[in-house]
C-alpha cells in the first residue's frame, strides 16, 4: 500500500468513524442511563434532517444553515422529551421494561418514519452544505462538509464527556444510570434526569442526521442503516461504557475503510461483521464493557 493510499484510507476511515461516534454516543447514553435500547434513534436522525431542510434555505423558512441546524436539534430534543414521557416513563420499574421499550420505541420508529413520508413525501431532499467546497487533508481531497464532520465530532463528544464528568446534572445522569435507588435517596428526581438524558440523546441523533443528510441526500430511510450500525458499535464497544462506544466507532470506521480499500465494497460489510463476531466471541463484554451487568 502506498503512502497516498494509506492517507486515503485514514481520511475516509476518520469521516466514517466520526459519524459512527456521533450517532452511537446517544444510543450509548440512553443505554447506560435508562438501561434500554432506543430503536427510535434512527428515526430521530431522519426527523432532524427533514426539520433542518424545512427550516433552511432550500426549504420553506429560509434560515441560514447553521441556525436551521441548531433549531432542528432543539426541536428533536423536545420530541425526545415527549417520547420519553409517552413511551418509556409508563414502564419504569416494570419487570419487562427492556422488552416493552423495545416494542414501544420500534412503534415510535414506524410512526415517525411514516409520518415523515406523509409530511415531506418520498422525494429526495438536498440539505444546503454547512461548509461548501472541497478541502485537501493529507493529500486526499474530501468535501469541506466531510472535513467539518471530522472536526465537529471530537468537539461534540468532548463537550458531552465534560458535561457528564463535571456538571452536576451530568453527574446526576451518571448516578441514576449506575444506581437509581441510591440516586433517589440523595434527593435526585430520577424520572426528570431520565428525560434529560433521553432528550440529549435525541439531540445527538438529530445532529448526526443533519450531518449525514448534508453529505448524502435526505430520504425517509436516512436513519435506518445508521441505527443498525450504531447498535453494533454500542455492543462492540461494551454496554455501559461511553468511552468504549467512541473507541469502537472510530475503530470500526477505520477497519471499514481499510476493508473497502483492500477487498472492495462488496465483501467489506460481511468481512467486518465476521471480525466483530470473532472479537465478541473472544471478548463477550465488548471492548470496554463490564463483565457483569
Amino acid at each position: 500500500m502506498t503512502l497516498d493510499a494509506l492517507a486515503t484510507v485514514l481520511v475516509s476511515g476518520l469521516v466514517m468513524g466520526s459519524v459512527y461516534a456521533l450517532m452511537a454516543s446517544g444510543l450509548s447514553l440512553v443505554w447506560s442511563t435508562l438501561g434500554i435500547f432506543n430503536f427510535a434513534h434512527g428515526a430521530l436522525m431522519t426527523l432532524g434532517a427533514y426539520l433542518a431542510w424545512t427550516l433552511a434555505g432550500s426549504g420553506v423558512l429560509g434560515l441560514p444553515p447553521w441556525i436551521a441546524m441548531l433549531v432542528a436539534v432543539a426541536l428533536v430534543a423536545a420530541v425526545g422529551v415527549l417520547l420519553e414521557r409517552l413511551l418509556i416513563r409508563p414502564f419504569y420499574g416494570h419487570r419487562a421494561m427492556l422488552l416493552v421499550t423495545v416494542m414501544t420505541t420500534l412503534a415510535a420508529t414506524v410512526f415517525l418514519s411514516k409520518g415523515i413520508q406523509l409530511v415531506w413525501g418520498p422525494r429526495l431532499k438536498e440539505l444546503p452544505a454547512l461548509a461548501p467546497g472541497n478541502v485537501s487533508i493529507l493529500g486526499t481531497s474530501i468535501s469541506a462538509q466531510e472535513a467539518l464532520i471530522v472536526g465537529v465530532a471530537p468537539i461534540v463528544l468532548g463537550a458531552l464527556w465534560a458535561f457528564l464528568r463535571f456538571s452536576s446534572t451530568g453527574r446526576g445522569i451518571r448516578a441514576v444510570g449506575q444506581n437509581p435507588q441510591a440516586a433517589q435517596l440523595i434527593g435526585i428526581d430520577v424520572p426528570r434526569l431520565f428525560a434529560i438524558a433521553f432528550a440529549l440523546a435525541a439531540a445527538l441523533a438529530a445532529l448526526t442526521g443533519i450531518l449525514i443528510g448534508s453529505v448524502r441526500l435526505v430520504t425517509p430511510s436516512l436513519g435506518d442503516e445508521p441505527l443498525i450500525k450504531a447498535l453494533i458499535i454500542v455492543i462492540f464497544g461494551g454496554l455501559g461504557s461511553m468511552a468504549g462506544t467512541i473507541w469502537a466507532a472510530y475503530l470500526i470506521g477505520l477497519a471499514e475503510a481499510l476493508l473497502v480499500f483492500t477487498i472492495g465494497i462488496y465483501w467489506a460489510p460481511s468481512t467486518l461483521f465476521l471480525l466483530l463476531i470473532l472479537v465478541l466471541v473472544l471478548r463477550p463484554q465488548g471492548l470496554m464493557g463490564k463483565v457483569v451487568r
Binding site: A175, Q178, N179, A182, A183, L185, I186
Partner: peptide, 29 residues
C-alpha cells in the same frame, strides 16, 4: 430528602463507577 430525612439503605453500593470524592460532592444534591 430535601426536608432532611435521610435514609441510608442496607448494603448500598452507591455509584460503583464514581470516585469517592465525586460521590460525596454529588450527594449534596
Amino acid at each position: 430528602v430535601a426536608a432532611g430525612l435521610i435514609h441510608v439503605p442496607q448494603a448500598n453500593t452507591v455509584f460503583p463507577d464514581m470516585e469517592i470524592q465525586e460521590t460525596l460532592e454529588l450527594a449534596a444534591w
